[in-house]
Design a protein around this nucleic acid. Structure first.
Lengths: 329, 329
DNA sequence: TTGAAAGCGCTAACAC
DNA sequence: GTGTTAGCGCTTTCAA
């Protein structure tokens, strides 16, 4: 028995041609029942399994999708990936994951690698904004968490502006008048949108405020939390991770949340409900977004649509324990 | 300009043969400087990038590794995957991720898919224990988080038994005499080991105890926490997620941790230090384990070793705020 | 219903 | 240093 079992060995074993073997494997055209059985037996006997590489080279697709994200260790992206993988797996695709750490250079490299590996499509959550560069790589792309004005591209995004606006209005109504806002990096679409909502909020309402520049990490929350000398009514954090850090830094200073100060997050990652105090935040349907991005890339691939699908998710304010209730004022 | 740029078009454009093009791309044998330049220019001009599929078919490897894990949305595995991906990427590999949800059938399917896609190696964290079945799939496998006695296989694991033993001894020394232990599923190696340590602990020491059967999730902690009617001195949870759930269930009942009861976890996932109360737990070097598993598969692939590498990590008790201090007794 | 053969894009052995 | 060519394992015409 040769080391490598190919369609050839099966053909020989079954006493048919390789095209016949291919036909029974793919059901691509009718095969006489007895012949089919002979082939199936040979496959079983020799433990044959097809070589997807050779197949892909021939047919021109790989049933493989690439996903570029900043960091899988961030639970936001882990949940997103899970959503995408579940859908893709159900449609017969595999998923290659690539962490970019939000570095444009790395993103470019990853695009090239995925192109070379001939993935059928790319799910892309990152910061690179030179759309032109996506032209010569002729692979369908779905942008995640970023609205693309250019109507050549599909995207899935949630309404960060509206979500933040809703949260801020809720806070205002519950007697929060003095704000500290900790932003994310300005390269990141969602961070810009959330900050923009805050900007317009302070224009509209007479409040005291201060903006601290941070990034989407626990450590950034820790650092920025320490910088807050004069306590506001609420610290509005651009995401949940920052809020965790801020709360921790307050804990070290014996500042009580929400009794002394309210703190809010954004995203509603899995842990925010487990956190103590449970975090008031804005929920993005993260898993769903991953799933829908996968669904879109799939539609693009089977060319079901002659338009470019786009999906904007609404976000929802989730009030928990890290903010004061109006009656507690 | 043809739709698809291959080595052929480059050869034509540069006025050389395709082998010369291949040589400059791979640096596989010396090429005259001027010729090289011509080729490079053509590549640039036509925006050529090689087809990894065709290359792999020819050379017999794909520079792609598969990883099978229960669930990427579990931060333990997300961190593990990040460790693996970082190392693999640095060595030029890509990573295909597969979620199995700890279902043996799904694991089998995933093995087949990865075999068909001709991954060079598989990182495997799962429950399937029929080692024989790994025989006909002739791909190097590194088992993660599971000690394999069969010396045909590499593994990376941490010393769950010792870690749990150390934790229990610490608890005993700090005046915890009545225990509730919430286990993980008995299909999972680490859960069995941690339970085994508890079994031996209660044999050696005169203590009151009760064992609750759970699984490695927050929800399981929530449910099992509610089942605890008579409060012990400490609830020892098989992992951090369970501990979060238990603490939450206690919170609902106004039971204070650690004042009324201590609670411990295992793993020390990223969030355990952010948790409130910060969780006393046992640290596994999760990122490191992912990284080393990747390193091992790489060694296997470049055949640097003529033995089967194996790595056992030690775990470390991390005392935080969810357990009583002895002096608080 | 089946078989022969071309060819997907590439590498590498061989020849010059 | 460079070109020619076989062939990796498969699918898909085309012919029978």
């Amino acid at each position: 028995m040769p080391d490598k079992i190919t369609i050839k060995e099966i053909a020989k074993e079954a006493g048919v041609s390789i095209s016949t073997v291919s036909r029974v494997i793919n059901g691509s055209s009718p095969v006489k029942k007895e012949t089919k059985e002979k082939v199936l037996n040979a496959i079983n006997k020799l433990n044959y399994y097809p070589d997807a590489l050779a197949r892909s080279l021939r047919v021109g697709y790989t049933d493989t999708i690439g996903i570029i994200i900043p960091n899988i260790a961030n639970p936001f992206f882990a949940t997103l990936v899970r959503g995408a993988e579940d859908y893709l797996r159900s449609k017969g695709y595999s998923l290659i994951i690539c962490n970019s750490d939000n570095a444009v250079d790395q993103e470019k490299k990853l695009f090239n690698i995925l192109a070379e590996k001939k993935v059928d499509g790319i799910l892309y959550s990152g910061i690179g904004d030179h759309l032109e560069k996506f032209n010569h790589i002729n692979i369908p792309i779905v942008f995640i968490d970023r609205v693309i004005k250019d109507n050549r591209f599909s995207y899935v995004c949630s309404n960060h502006y509206k979500g933040m606006e809703d949260l801020l209005n809720y806070l205002f109504e519950t007697n929060h008048k003095r704000y500290v806002f900790i932003s994310g990096k300005k390269e990141i679409f969602s961070a810009v949108e959330r900050l923009r909502a805050f900007g317009n909020f302070v224009k509209k309402n007479k409040i005291e405020y201060k903006i601290l520049e941070g990034e989407y990490t626990y450590e950034s929350g820790l650092i920025n939390g320490k910088k807050i000398k004069k306590l506001p009514d609420v610290v509005v954090c651009s995401n949940d991770l920052i809020a965790y850090g801020v709360i921790e830094s307050f804990k070290e200073r014996k500042i009580k949340v929400p009794q002394d100060v309210s703190v809010t997050g954004y995203d509603d990652i899995t842990f925010s409900k487990m956190f103590s105090p449970a975090l008031t935040t804005v929920r993005q349907p993260i898993y769903e977004m991953g799933k829908i991005s996968a669904e879109i890339i799939h539609r693009l691939l089977i060319k079901k649509d002659d338009y470019i699908p786009v999906k904007l998710f609404q976000n929802q304010v989730i009030v928990r324990e890290s903010t004061r209730n109006p009656r507690n004022k």
